[in-house]
Amino acid sequence: MSSITLGQYFPGNSLLHRLDPRFKIVLAILYITASFLCKNIWSFAALAISAVVLVLVSRIPVSIVLRGLRPILFIMLFTVVLNIFLTRGETLLVEFWVIRIYLEGILTAVSMVLRITVIIVGTGMFLTYTTTPIALTDGIERLLSPLKVFHLPVHEFAMMMTIALRFIPLLIEETEKIMAAQKARGADFSTGSLLQRAKALIPILVPLFVSAFRRADELAVAMECRCYRGGEGRTRMTVLHATAADWLMLAAVILFGASLVLINRFAPGFTL
């Protein structure tokens, strides 16, 4: 009955949706790194435009992207206020009682907000909005697979992620069911002192843990029955193939980073 979707994946078939998840992870990292290269107002402008282009290419409705930014609105506001009121610079704009606002403060505030937005939008466009959690896990496993040489449990880590993704909605549903069952026996989770409320959680937590262990047990047996023996000798149904689009996108992001550096150096003014 419950309709919990994990993450923010937005189904679609845009260029970004179709990219190889391994490339998308690398692209996201490169793009975020590029955002830190911005030094003046022109490179920041280029960055802002690139973020808009990404959103357009992903064909994800702008309203959805904005909604994704809502949780960090507070952090952004906080940054803005802090920077505007506390940054000391040379160009004084406003002086009133103890408040002094400098141009540098405003510029820093704008650049911080832009940077945070780009990081969120960038990871969103390359990863969370356009890549299913399972493809993401798959991408991570394969990107990290060279580390197996050093006996790092890369496969096991990916398997854990997959199982977590599979079972989190189930456990949320289960929690709701247990809460309903105990409410039917007169449990009260919302009134009383903090201690009373903490105590009221026991009738939920005990059955939840019992059930989680039972599920884990049954799942382990079912996996063994399906010949699971760890990552060794395992093949995969879907083989990831890098396409021309993946390489082109990679080249584009690298070029973008390089051009930011050039803009910093050759376009004068408003250094931040």
Partner: peptide
């Protein structure tokens, strides 16, 4: 509820059956 055995949580059966009446 369905599969009500998964809502048992007390240390004894007696205490578990008493949970509802106690809340009353």
């Amino acid at each position: 509820m369905q599969y009500p055995e998964y809502q048992l949580f007390e240390e004894t059966v007696r205490a578990d059956i008493a949970y509802g009446p106690k809340n009353m």
